[in-house]
């Protein structure tokens, strides 16, 4: 932001100063039924428009699938929501009261947005239990982390998540030694430990067997309701098996939205996927 724009921003009369109106990240206001508002967002890298006036909304408790060809901007969209990439324009609000564009990655995570990466990233030198312990919701300041001791409830919480992701038997196993699919689950487990309101899940079934896929599908659908879940996935069969509502991303904006059948019969989607 240029200095002039900063000054202008400071003297805007329709808004109070940020420090007066301090954002309360702990409580997201979803009284209008929406948990995520992505409006008019654009970003470009070296002249290439990765996201182009993107608009979409996620409802509370919804399970939304995002599909789209390579380079459609799916990962970039997640980067924007989680604070890794700053958009050139547009706004991203978490509930009605939290402006995600003004927050850092850890703040966004603390506010209740969890993210699973495309490439499963777990802490390979730690065991499964430790991975989950670190992800656990709570005060994550330096001193409190240093002083943190596990209570028995927290122990139980970790145990139950290990149950959910099917890794109870190998709590002391190093995460680096897990199979690809197990790493994916562990990462989802870490998301659960954070107790997020919104889960962003990037390609959860890549590299999984069919059985594992089914299990993952079950897991994700069971999460919806209590949490809102956005799944980005390539595998159409998997999307069909879990999706109620699908958004098709193309060249950085939403091409179509609706049920799987509607989307599949949409003329423009067919053109994009099958070529003109």
């Amino acid at each position: 932001m240029s200095a002039l724009a900063k000054i202008r921003e400071t003297f805007r009369r329709d808004q109070v100063f940020d420090f007066v109106n301090k954002q309360d990240y702990s409580r997201v206001d979803t009284s209008h039924g929406q948990i995520l508002y992505v409006e008019d967002v654009s970003v470009s890298f070296d002249g290439f428009k990765a996201i182009n006036e993107l608009n979409f909304y996620i409802e509370v408790g919804e399970l939304r699938c995002m599909i789209g060809p390579n380079g459609a901007g799916k990962t970039t969209m997640m980067d924007i929501i989680t604070g890794k990439t700053r958009p050139d324009q547009g706004s991203v609000w978490f509930g009605q009261n939290i402006n995600l564009l003004k927050m850092t990655e850890p703040e966004i995570a603390q506010a209740g947005v969890g993210r699973k990466f495309q490439k499963p990233t777990v802490f390979e030198h730690h065991d499964i239990f430790e991975n989950l312990e670190m992800a656990m919701a709570g005060n994550k300041g330096v001193w409190s982390t240093f002083r943190a001791r596990l209570s028995s409830e927290q122990h139980d919480q970790i145990a139950s998540v290990m149950e959910i992701i099917g890794l109870s038997d190998c709590a002391k196993q190093r995460a680096g030694a897990l199979s690809h699919g197990q790493k994916q689950w562990l990462e989802i487990g870490m998301l659960l430990m954070q107790n997020p309101k919104l889960l962003l899940v990037d390609e959860p079934v890549a590299g999984m067997t069919h059985q594992e896929m089914d299990k993952t599908g079950e897991l994700l659908t069971s999460l919806a309701g209590e949490h809102s879940v956005v799944v980005v996935e390539h595998d159409m069969d998997f999307v069909r098996s879990i999706a109620k509502k699908v958004s098709v991303l193309h060249q950085g904006s939403i091409l179509a939205e609706g049920s799987m059948d509607e989307v599949q019969n949409n003329q423009r989607v067919i053109e994009v996927y099958l070529g003109e």
């Binding site: 989680t82 890794k84 850092t104 990655e105 850890p106 995570a109 603390q110 969890g114 993210r115 990466f117 990233t121 777990v122 802490f123 390979e124 030198h125 730690h126 430790e130 312990e133 670190m134 992800a135 919701a137 994550k140 300041g141 330096v142 982390t145 240093f146 002083r147 943190a148 870490m190 954070q194």
Partner: peptide, 27 residues
């Protein structure tokens, strides 16, 4: 301590630590 575990996690996968809510720069 848990802090120590997070510190090692920062060494291995800094980004992930940030996305589970730790202020990596503070640590």
């Amino acid at each position: 301590s848990r802090l120590g575990k997070v510190v090692v996690a920062i060494r291995d996968t800094e980004d992930r630590v940030r996305f589970i809510g730790y202020r990596v720069d503070h640590i």
